[in-house]
Nucleic acid binder design. Structure first.
Lengths: 214, 214, 214, 214
DNA sequence: TATGAATGAGCTTTCATTCAT
DNA sequence: TATGAATGAAAGCTCATTCAT
């Protein structure tokens, strides 16, 4: 499921550098950045320790260069492929179907890149250099996309008159909560019913849990 | 708001040990466990570095002893005070009012102890010794309480016939999502409208965002 | 002869710090700064390697702190004791006797602290941070003293009408040349005839080597 | 002035090897041998780092091969050209003129090759392998030449009856002192008056600074 | 011949831990 | 009990040297 695959953009990135990045993602996600040893990354990457420092000035540098793969992984496919699916083709499909597919897309992207996402998200709590680009580049793009979707349906009269940003946040919130909970306590979730779970989440989001609400 | 106050249970815990724990919570939450230095904890606690090791065998030991304060902070008040409010007194109050109060209670508890919670939650991702007790002691108690609440309303016919555990998870999910989002991106939230935000979240949870649903 | 004795000013300098400084002077003078290993300094000082970095932030820091002992060794005794001997008491003594004693004083100071002097002089060729204080503090004081001596005798009509600074430089030059040559090629000099050698140097300086002079 | 020109003897020395030697002389003289990086030498020589090790087994090897250029630079011209000028043609010229020209010759040779000379001289203090050949080959030849000159004038009755070797040493000493001082403290010397300075030095050497000495 | 990516031994420096006081 | 100087194992990083191309 998680394959740390960051090779899609191996335009001219050297093989060894890619192996080091993959190894770093794995080790960072298991031990945390500060708890990781460059020696372990080297071993994991089947590379001499010195080689790491040919490609990255410092250990911290490895962490910071995870921003690029993360961005490429999320911005590119998410903003391009999904955005059109949602906003153009989606206009005729039922609202819950569209939302479910959107959340599933994001979820799959996150799950496929869980070690990378986990590492960047957690380390951004301790390293401003990581948080700032996320806030200024990644987050706005995701928000813009979702805001567009929400506004479209608000104007169409599908959604209640909540503040657009509140609805966006709530959608994000539910997905985020699911991701975190299901990662931390996988034994409470059945792996094979992920699609059903997301379907339920979308249903709650749209109709609420109250009996009688449609 | 966050005062790291763990002195409530200073039955016979020595003053210096408490100061070390408080300092550790502060430093751990700012730098992460591995990124924290015992020298900084000592300075923050106004204590000699050697003193730390009179009370804690190792640095890791400090981290592990955060479980006790966390448990005391959450299990005790939450299970005792709130549980009764919710299940007994709450039976006559409207369902959304009860839920809102419950979430606000939890939220306040979390915010008041954010550094402690942040540290234990994040470090539990890297240290089994921390995760296991959480899964086996803390989580079940919280789940039991919420499950009870959900079951009560399901039986009363207030809630749709979702799986109890799914509703519980969804409630947790939304709160967790809110906590994480509002901590990571405080600039997207207005600090003074926390209560309104929770109110909205509860409304969405109960009625959904779909127009026409009550 | 060379005892690396820098303890004279051990006002409150910790014993271990002194031992590290002494060891560093020894090792630096034998291997050069860059060729020296902190591990060897530690061993020489009978101290754990980590202890070095309790007293000095970096290895470079050790080098820079040699300036203080050097200054104390040279400025203090030289400027105070010798200056008066030379300029006051010396006024009645024959000019060559005074000069000979002055040069012998300096020479003994240099020889007694040869490793320290060698290290600072050579490393100042590669480290601006070392050269600047020497040029701005040490050198001017030495020059001022010698200039005073030279001027006194020029005014008295003892010396030819060379530029004062030229004579000063020439005196320094001859001593410097002797120190360097006798250090590099000790086998060309008889150790026990140092005083005779200096006497000859002073004679040449005053009377030249030309026959018939005097 | 200093052109590191060691190409005079490029009998069959490959171009790249020469470039490496020149680069090494430059870098060594600026950073010291141990403080120099082969990577920097390679860059300075416009050569791949690996190429260095095609021509020199080790970094140390580069240092040792500086002996040959140094010897060629000094022994050859100095012993051949100057020696005849001094001992043959010089016999009719005034003693101070000859000495002045000799010192100027040496001085120019030293200045033109300062980085090379500086490096070999300083590093010989830390590397026996460098010092021994200097002591056994270079020094004796220089001394023999000067001794011959001094003896010639002693026998002619021009010089006082000092030990020949003492006079030789004193001449070397004064020149050495001048070179070192003027290199370390160039601001104390006027560059354009080098010839005048040497003239003065020779005058002092011959006549002394005492007033009335001829 | 010349390259430069890769190496890994060894460097300086850090830091949790110990222990004499 | 509390200290903080001292420790030394282990960390990140450097750099002379190798070798496949």
């Amino acid at each position: 499921m998680t394959d740390n695959n960051i090779r899609e953009f191996d335009d001219e990135i050297p093989e060894k550098k890619l192996k080091i990045l993959e190894a770093a993602i794995k080790v960072f996600s298991e031990k945390g950045f500060e708890g990781s040893r460059t020696s372990e990354i080297a071993k994991e990457a089947n590379v001499a320790e010195g080689t790491i420092f040919k490609y990255f000035k410092t250990k911290k540098d490895i962490l910071l260069s995870l921003l690029l793969p993360l961005t490429l992984k999320f911005i590119k496919p998410f903003a391009m492929k999904s955005a059109e699916k949602i906003l153009n083709k989606g206009k005729d499909e039922p609202v819950d179907e569209v939302l479910k597919n959107l959340l599933l897309d994001i979820l799959h992207l996150v799950k496929k890149n869980m070690p990378l996402v986990k590492t960047v998200v957690i380390e951004s709590l301790y390293h401003e250099e990581l948080l700032v680009p996320i806030k200024e580049k990644l987050a706005p793009q995701v928000l813009e996309l979702l805001d567009g979707y929400v506004n479209y349906h608000k104007e169409k009269g599908d959604f209640k008159d909540y503040d657009t940003r509140f609805i966006t946040r709530t959608i994000m919130s539910m997905l985020l909560g699911y991701v975190v909970l299901s990662s931390a306590f996988p034994e409470f979730f059945s792996l094979d019913e992920e699609e059903k779970e997301i379907e339920n989440i979308v249903n709650v989001l749209i109709n609420g849990i109250k009996n009688g609400g449609v």
